[in-house]
Write a protein that binds this DNA or RNA. Structure first.
Lengths: 251, 251
DNA sequence: CGACTTCTTGAACCGAGTCAAGAAGGGTGG
DNA sequence: CCACCCTTCTTGACTCGGTTCAAGAAGTCG
């Protein structure tokens, strides 16, 4: 798991305006054009905030990863969520230490969601933004469970499975593999563990053949089994076989 | 910390429609009357959900405590938040195992928020509901930090300090003391710890003279100091002296 | 009073943290 | 292309916070 930036969306229309490209692959082309005209580039490590003048801003991630996090006065950090290409969010101003903030984990391209509907939020944009907010909140709950009630191994797998599904939805997964620009430290700060323990946990998972990590990419082997082990439930309710999670049938 | 129900709001107008009574102690009296006509009673332990027919329901807690939680298929439970008198929320239907659900921790009285504005949500109600949602989300982030990055002692104190502030805001604190209808198990499930360890942690805090717990009531001694220790930041930004939290100056 | 829940405490265990040092990458300038 | 630096990853040894198991005490309720 090495930091390697530049995982830009292969084909534009797959990560277009709609938060969930599956429902309508190619949205209004003119809208997407407008999209690109208002793109902002943010370098890795930089904070994402409203310009001094503005109030609140609805953005869409076009390329790259963003973390939503808080830093405690004594330096401890907690990452609440990762924003991936296609994700929308409302950004308000904040100082970050003590409060929440968005930080670019890679070089990032973001677009103003408002611009998609030229000016005021129009119906479809407002809707997908609302839908995005709903999902974001749901993920936040998942994250609380992860941190509060899962073991280290379960946490790691559970998070990776979520990232898999989300990246898959925007076409960034191929052969059960996706690029992941996170350092083990970021992983640790998201999951409430120490870097060292994240490392050891990944080693274990590797040895058990459950996943492959390295050079900025992750491959999940037998996601079905991993999901059952890590109490992971896919967002779309189609597939849900999990019995009592936590135990490992054969491993 | 013993379960003792019946902590009803002493004076009605303090817990009236507005989520934050401080800004306007006595809201429209007629509205409050209407309030009482549409009150629902829910016994301790019961789930709170929409009636079979309905879709989504905006409610206000009038009396009692409610927990928002999820139960994993293997029985582990995570409590996301506590709803106290005066809190508003939007309730949608859910099965609870696997997904989220609201459970009455005590006997509870709830009112329909919509009823406050006779029918459709009117401006003031919609606003305070939006404001309540904002705060609720902010608290959820606080909770993630608590669980993800604080030690057991910090977690316990931090949560108690939050409950203090919220109960104080609706007039349910007197002499640094408030009633708390939580069992240690609920505390454990909220903070991601075991019951036994919650118990021991409370013992420690007692011995250090930081708080008093017993017979369903908690008293916090020297909240200023406790807040600094537990990385707690009050919602209203007036008072914030905390330096680098985590260490105990003298104790 | 009896039954049940909740609290408390001890002892043993172990998952995860800390400290520390070395290896492996990755990027940069000469 | 190499030398160097800095970040990230890895591993070992040790510590410790928190869990588990178990059993008894204290409350609480009918």
């Amino acid at each position: 798991m090495v930091m390697t930036g530049d995982d830009r969306v292969a084909s534009l229309n797959r990560s277009s305006a709609s938060a969930d490209p599956r429902e309508g692959p190619s949205t209004d082309v003119g809208r997407v054009r407008n999209f690109w005209r208002t793109v902002d580039r943010v370098p890795a490590g930089a904070a994402i905030s409203v310009r001094p003048g503005g109030r609140t801003r609805n953005i869409v991630v076009v390329t790259g990863w963003i973390a939503e996090s808080r830093i405690l006065p004594d330096g401890r950090r907690q990452i609440f969520a990762f924003m991936l290409p296609g994700d929308m969010a409302a950004v308000s101003e904040s100082s970050h230490v003590g409060s929440r903030g968005l930080v670019a984990l890679t070089n990032v391209e973001i677009a103003d969601a408002a611009a998609l509907g030229r000016g005021a939020l129009d119906e479809p944009v407002a809707n997908s933004l609302a839908e995005a907010m709903r999902r974001r909140e749901e993920r936040l709950f998942d994250h609380v469970v992860r941190i509060g009630r899962l073991s280290a191994m379960e946490r790691v797998l559970n998070l990776l499975l979520e990232l898999y599904d989300r990246l898959d939805a925007v076409g960034l997964v191929k052969d059960d593999t996706f690029r992941i620009p996170l350092t083990q430290e970021m992983f640790a700060d998201a999951l409430g563990l120490s870097v060292v323990h994240i490392n050891r946990t990944l080693q274990q998972l590797r040895r058990k053949g459950m996943l492959t990590v390295g050079r900025g990419a992750v491959t999940l082997h037998d996601r079905q089994r991993l999901a059952a082990f890590a109490c992971y439930e896919s967002e779309r309710p189609a597939e849900r076989p999990l019995g009592r999670c936590g135990s490992m049938a054969g491993g």
